[in-house]
Design a protein around this nucleic acid. Structure first.
Length: 897
RNA sequence: GGGCGCGUAACUCAGCGGUAUAGAGUGCUACCCUUACAAGGUAGAGGUCAUAGGUUCAAAUCCUAUCGCGCCCACCA
């Protein structure tokens, strides 16, 4: 008993209902104890504060396609979902909420504040999960993870401990990127460099004791800087030793303007004589190059800034001013002192906080770092050996380049929301030194110890005292994300999940995240689990708006996927976005693009409706086309589609798979087979084929459009409570590929098209039937036409008057050549001889021009001897074909004269 | 300063392991509410594949250069 499919396709109702059914039947659940082969993917955990944007929609559609495809193939699939705690972003969100209540985290205290963040997480942190469900994602929600979960936190602690013990983790003074607004250090990756048009300021520094006449009548040196306010932290002036302009400064001191500090002049090859004046002010606490110089020349850095970007006590009267206000004020004072030379336009790239977009300040600070070079070695190796593959391949180079030049990773953050660094300090052992200032490199530093895992004692292991305090900082969010592929499966315990599902199979992500996440996961997997975390990395493009700008909420150019789903359905959204995304190319989106998927879903819906209407009380059996030409043809084409889709998916060519399906379903199955089926005489065979192919189409399309296919499939005859989602994936059946049937059917289609074409050209009204005559060259062609005359007559709206090898051209007719078959269409008085003459001569000219190039090609000895035989054959048969057509056209031209 | 990607029909894009008179969707034109579908059907118009060289029997496809556009990385103060 088949169910009736409603006339109208209502995606919203269907999608919500179907998803609930899947959930209820627990179809997403992966079974770690089953014997089936595993296929697993971990979700790139979205930020808990996030809402679903188009980038997520694309990313998760791709993953869902992979997972559904593999699940249908019989794999035990695990798609593990979750979110990350997004330390800075989440803290910012909650702080903003507090600000509305006129409160700050400082006056709440750490514990209360964290309580509040957890509260926020419970309330709003699930948004994106719900949205992913609405998209149709078949994740195993019972395994949803969060980077601050107990299990994952234990993994973080374990990793911290191992790195610490292996001396891959240290605390030291280095220049880091500091966000004055968030009040924390950032990693290099978290500082987004943007080109700004800034200024280059030229400033005079007096040379101590220099006589004016010494050289060029000068007693000063001019330095150039983009950040004049940093002069408050200057400790030297550096010039290149080979720069003769400055050799007179040997042994001299210069006087820092405003503060009047005495500065050394140092000579170092690092200084580029061609930049600015060739003299560099050295500010080790605020610039990485200067810091390196200071280390080399044994200079003590002077920090001139507070955490919030204001000038500190080292800045004299500028103390308390914001860095940019200080810049203005200092320039003003320099002008008054006649120490300001000039200001030039200067474009340079400036780091911005990736969370709040404030200009970051390079700043000397004591932070925790991970030594990356030792970890990168193996990460490079596995990619070079092809154990991990990037798709498209070009990203391999990007990855390797970053890995080969990797720098230490600053992992401490001066915020509260995150995994607190499990390092404790014994105030007594440190003898009054502030824990903040302690340098640590591995175990053994008196007064510094780790508290991880179960042991809860915070007594100092060195002196046994209890006057201890924990490091106030938390770890970078990525310090938990980089463990995601195994921490989510229970590591460090050897769980059944890990055994079965690790390494995972594919990682699907965006290019922006290669350094942040992909590379680090590879290193973490190899270091802690001693195995790669995944085998294939598929990098998809960035979703941009129609002007090519990256979609972002602050720009207001977002297309909200939920809105699109509301309007056209998740299936349509999925199909559209997959179709327009080719192999990692950026996607330029506009709303009208989604009509594509919507129309296709609608087409599928209606085609299915037609098929079901014809099933009546049909009991499905085994489809066999027997001698039915159309049946053999569509079965052959269907199997071709199975093959195409499979091959495309294997190659991560999702858009190719989508367009192969589109072409087959719409232009073969719907446009032709359904029309042919209406005329079929053997209803039993036809029904069988209709339903069999529809069943296959639904299976092939399920990963792309899960909802509509599931809905229709369940209404197919004999699907008693089964789910398409967990049924089988079509297998390419080579024996169904029938070239003879394909050629014959294509010839018939061409004949019908030819008749339609002529009708249209001569403005024959659709209602009027025309008479046609076929002149064939052999009995097989004659049989093909006569056996399928219904198709030709009905679809071409014509009546066949004659099929013969000797048919003569009827009077007042026009003709067309299809393969070797000549089709005459009798037009009677509709024909305009002059118009027809012109039509024919135009065509003759066109063909003759082409024939000339063809002949040239075939006359070319090199071509004939060097090109593959089949190509030459192809060209020859083309020549024959067109020569024949020209001959026919010429006869026609004669005939109408 | 390096690295990468893109310039194909009016628009948005496929095609780029060399061998179609270069494809799709949208838009456009004409006709059609033909009992699955007007979110549709039939037929059609529309392209010197950015430019210039080169390799080849053969180039949108490979190489080189140029011009546009976009992205990523980098300590030019």
């Amino acid at each position: 008993m088949s169910n009736i499919i409603p006339t109208r396709y209502e995606p919203k109702e269907i999608e919500e209902r179907i998803y609930a059914e899947w959930e209820e039947k627990k179809l997403f659940r992966a079974d770690e104890s089953s014997q089936k082969s595993a296929y697993s993917i971990v979700i790139p955990p979205p930020n808990v504060t996030g809402v679903l944007h188009m980038g997520h929609a694309l990313n998760n559609t791709i993953q869902d396609i992979l997972v559904r495809w593999k699940r249908m193939q019989g794999y035990d699939t695990l798609w593990l979902p979750g979110t990350d705690h997004a330390g800075i972003a989440t803290q910012n969100v909650v702080e903003r909420a507090l600000a509305k209540e006129k409160r700050t985290r400082a006056d709440m205290g750490r514990d209360k504040f964290l309580e509040r963040v957890w509260q926020w997480k419970e309330e709003y942190g699930g948004t994106i999960i719900h949205q992913l469900k609405r998209l149709g994602c078949s994740c195993d929600w019972t395994r949803t993870r969060f980077t601050m979960d107990k299990g994952l936190s234990e993994a973080v602690m374990e990793v911290f401990k191992r790195l610490f013990e292996d001396r891959l983790l240290y605390k030291g003074d280095y220049i880091i990127n500091w966000c004055p607004r968030c009040g924390t250090a950032l990693s290099d990756e978290e500082a987004e460099h943007r080109d700004l048009s800034g200024k280059l300021y030229y400033i005079k520094y007096q040379v101590e004791g220099a006589l004016k006449l010494e050289i060029e009548n000068k007693d000063y040196i001019v330095v150039a800087t983009t950040r004049p306010e940093t002069l408050l932290g200057d400790v030297a002036v550096a010039v290149n030793p080979d720069d003769e302009r400055y050799s007179w400064l040997e042994g001299k001191k210069v006087i820092l303007p405003i503060l009047k500090r005495r500065l050394d002049v140092i000579f170092d090859k690092e200084v580029d004589p061609s930049f600015g004046t060739g003299a560099l002010k050295v500010t080790p606490a605020h610039d990485p190059v200067d810091f390196a110089l200071a280390v080399k020349h044994d200079l003590k850095p002077i920090n001139a800034m507070n955490n919030d970007g204001t000038i500190n006590e080292n800045g004299g009267e500028y103390q308390g001013l914001d860095r940019f206000e200080a810049r203005e004020a200092i320039v003003e004072e320099l002008k008054q002192r006649h120490q300001f030379v000039k200001m030039e336009d200067h474009d340079h790239s400036v780091g911005h906080c990736y969370r709040c977009h404030t200009v970051v300040e390079p700043r000397l600070s004591k932070q925790w770092f991970v030594r990356m070079k030792p970890l990168a070695v193996e990460g490079i190796q596995v990619v070079n050996e092809g154990k991990i593959r990037f798709h498209p391949e070009r990203w391999t180079k990007v990855y390797l380049n970053w890995m080969e030049n990797i720098r230490d990773w600053c992992v401490s953050r001066q915020i509260w929301w995150g995994h607190r660094i499990p390092v404790w300090y014994c105030v007594d052992c440190l003898g009054g030194k502030s824990p903040r200032d302690v340098e640590v490199d591995g175990p053994g530093v008196t007064g510094v110890f780790l508290v991880t895992g179960e042991e809860k004692t915070t007594k100092c292991p060195f002196c046994g005292g209890g006057n201890t305090a924990q490091d106030p900082d938390v770890l970078d969010t990525w310090f938990s994300s980089w463990l995601w592929p195994f921490s989510t499966m229970g590591w460090p315990r050897e769980t059944a999940e890990l055994t079965k599902f690790y390494p995972t199979d594919a990682l699907v992500t965006a290019q922006e995240i290669i350094f942040f996440w992909v590379a680090r996961m590879i290193m973490a997997g190899l270091k802690f689990r001693e195995d790669i975390p995944f085998r294939d990395v598929y990098i998809h493009g960035t979703v941009r708006d129609s002007t090519g700008t990256k979609m972002s909420k602050s720009l207001g150019n977002v297309i909200d996927p939920l809105e699109v789903i509301q309007e056209v359905g998740a299936d349509a959204l999925r199909y559209s976005i997959i179709s327009i995304t080719s192999q990692g190319q950026d996607v330029f989106l506009s709303k009208d693009k989604f009509e594509f998927g919507r129309n296709f879903a609608n087409k599928l819906w209606n085609a299915s409706r037609y098929v079901m209407m014809n099933m009546e009380d049909h009991v499905p059996g085994k489809a066999s086309a027997g001698n039915d030409l159309a049946g053999k043809w569509i079965m052959s084409a269907y199997n071709q589609a199975v093959d195409d889709v499979q091959k495309s998916l294997v190659a991560f060519r999702f858009n190719d798979a989508a367009s192969a399906l589109y072409e087959f379903v719409w232009h073969k199955y719907c446009d032709w087979y359904l029309e042919l089926s209406k005329l079929s005489e053997d209803k039993v065979v036809t029904r069988e084929i209709l339903i069999t192919v529809l069943d296959g189409i639904l299976r092939l399309m399920h990963p792309f459009m899960p909802f509509i296919t599931e809905e229709i499939w369940q209404k197919l005859p004999s699907k008693n409570g089964e789910f398409l989602m967990t049924s089988g994936w079509p297998v390419f059946d080579e024996t169904s590929v029938d070239l003879v049937a394909t050629n014959s059917m294509e010839a018939l289609i061409a004949m019908i098209t030819a008749v339609r074409n002529i009708r249209s050209f001569w403005n024959i009204e659709p209602k009027v039937s025309v008479d046609v005559v076929f002149k064939v060259e052999n009995k097989r062609d004659a049989a093909l036409i006569s056996e399928n005359s219904v198709y030709v007559e009905k679809l071409g709206r014509c009546s066949i008057k004659e099929i013969s090898e000797k048919a003569a051209r009827p009077g007042k007719s026009v003709s067309s050549l299809v393969n070797r078959i000549k089709v005459f269409v009798l037009l009677g008085d509709a024909i305009d001889l002059e118009k027809e003459g012109k039509r024919i001569s135009d065509r003759i000219e066109e063909l003759q021009n082409y024939l000339i190039t063809l002949e040239k090609k075939l006359d070319n000895k090199d071509f004939v001897s060097r090109a593959p035989a089949e190509i030459v054959e192809k060209e020859k048969s083309k020549k024959e074909k067109f020569t024949r057509e020209v001959r026919t056209l010429k006869e026609n031209l004669e005939a109408i004269k």
